[in-house]
């Protein structure tokens, strides 16, 4: 197997590409895909040159084709291979360049950080609220939790399900028209990674309250600050967690990389 280093490495790169392109959901935009592939190839490159033995293994098959062989029969074959590889390579590069330049096939990559850093403090109906460290005040009132869930559900079904869906999976009957699509609260990478204060900020300020890195300037998430009361928002947050069976992240935990 040792001599096969070149094809092993080649297979690894192809596998990485296939995983990035087809396995990961949601789909990675193509510009980001190029970037990731550059990183993979760079990493493979570093790995190869870090070890002279490995580098030799890697280069040997290449060398064996390039360097003139004494045996005329082998040399004949090598020559063909050389012509083929060195002729096709520039052609492939040219085709790739041309396709990439024909803007017609492109569409802008709308890169967005789905969970940007929240502000430390917001003004809620002119009242300053510190988001950092803010807890859901209704959770302290354990006796009435069921009542809050019930009332939160009503808030949800009067205001949110059009977009976020009855199932809270982001598939409401308006969702088809939206880009970006409404947040899917049942996604494990979503609300269970967030503090309740983060949701409070997002619900209060909506898509327009997002910082620059959080938006392709197209979010239809409304701002609820002037529609719902502070308590309504805390209730609907409780309902969202309760109904999806998720736990909010607590402030005591070390922040994960969002």
């Amino acid at each position: 197997m040792k001599t096969d280093k070149l094809s092993q490495i080649f297979l690894l790169v192809v596998a990485a590409f296939l995983v990035l392109k087809y396995v990961i959901h949601p789909r990675i935009p193509s510009s980001l895909l190029y970037f990731y592939m550059m990183i993979v190839i760079f990493a493979v490159f570093i790995y190869i040159i870090s070890d002279t033995k490995l580098l030799q293994d890697f280069l040997n098959p290449i060398k064996s084709i390039i360097i003139k062989n004494e045996d005329p029969l082998i040399e004949e074959r090598n020559k063909e291979a050389r012509m083929l590889i060195f002729g096709l390579l520039p052609l492939a590069v040219a085709v790739f360049t041309y396709i990439n330049l024909s803007v017609g096939t492109k569409q802008p990559a709308e890169l967005r950080s789905i969970h940007p850093e929240p502000p430390l403090q917001i003004l809620f109906r002119e009242k300053p609220l510190r988001i950092l460290g803010l807890k859901n005040p209704l959770r302290a009132d354990k006796k009435n939790l069921n009542k809050y869930i019930e009332e939160g559900a009503v808030v949800y079904f009067e205001n949110c399900f059009f977009c976020h869906g009855d199932n809270l999976d982001g598939n409401g009957h308006f969702a088809e028209a939206l880009n970006p699509r409404p947040a899917d609260f049942t996604d494990p990478g979503s609300i269970s990674q967030l503090q309740e204060s983060y949701l409070f900020w997002r619900i209060s300020k909506g898509g327009q309250g997002l910082p620059a890195e959080g938006t392709p300037w197209n979010s239809a998430m409304p701002s609820w600050e002037n529609v719902l009361t502070e308590e309504d928002i805390w209730k609907v947050i409780i309902y969202i967690y309760e109904s999806t069976g998720m736990e909010p992240r607590r402030w005591e935990e070390k922040p994960l990389n969002r």
Binding site: L89, P90, L91, V93, A94, V95, F96, T97, Y98, L101, S102, V103, G104, Q107, P108, A177, L178, N179, W217, N218, A220
Partner: peptide, 26 residues
Amino acid sequence: TWHYLFLEKKETGRNVLYSILAILFT
């Protein structure tokens, strides 16, 4: 919500030039 409108102006000359450059470099 926002979509895009894209009025394409074919720049075949430019694209061919860049492709030939790419061949030369390789």
